[in-house]
Amino acid sequence: MEPVTTIDGRAYPFGQKNVDTDVIIPSHWLKTITREGLGRGAFESLRTDPDNLFDSAEFSGSPILVAGDNFGCGSSREHAAWALLDLGVRAVIAPSFSDIFSGNAFKNGILTVVLPQDAVDRLAEVARTQPIHIDLEQQTVTTPFQDRFAFDIDPFRKNCLLNGLDEVGLTLAQSDVIGVFEDRVRAERPFLATGVAA
C-alpha cells in the first residue's frame, strides 16, 4: 500500500445520501479477477448523464470526493474501493460511511474522513470552485478560505496509512499468539476447532 500523508486538489461536490455500492460500481463489473481498470465502471449509472460531475472537464480526475450520509452502504464489494482508486480518488469526506466500505477503503489507502453535516456542506460549497487540502498527520481538512476542520481517525489506521503498512504481514508476525489461542479453543470448545476436509 502507498503511504498517505497529504491529499490536495479539487473535490467532487457529490453529496447524496445513502449512495450504495451498486451505484459506485454496478455488479456486472464484478466479474473481473484483477483489481485494475474499474474506474471506467465507477458511478456508471450516473455517468449516462452527459453533464455528470465525474466526466466534467473541471472535476474529472479529482482526488477527493465530498459525499453524503451513509456513503458506501450495501454490498461488501471491495471493487467499490478499487473503482474509486482507479478513478483517482484518494479521500472521501462524508458525515458517515458504511462500516464495510470504510474498512475496504482504508485497506486500499483511501482515507475516509468523517465530519459533521454542516462541515461537509461547507466543503461541498468550496469544492465547486476551489481545491481542498487534507493533512492526515495533523488530522485536518482546510480550504483556501481559511476553513479548518479537525477529524478523528483510529490510531492504528492512521499509522498504517502514514507508513503504507501491510496488515496481513503485521498479523502474520503474530502467528504464535494465534497458535496459542487455537490450542485453547481445541481444549475448551473442540466443536469449533473441528473443520472440514478438502
Binding site: 454490498s75 461488501s76 464489494r77 471491495e78 474501493a81 464495510i100 474498512g103 475496504n104 485497506k107 486500499n108 496488515e167 496481513v168 498479523t171
Partner: peptide
C-alpha cells in the same frame, strides 16, 4: 461481510 483484503487476511 468483509471485503477482499479481509478475505485475504
Amino acid at each position: 461481510g468483509i471485503g477482499t483484503s479481509e478475505v485475504e487476511h
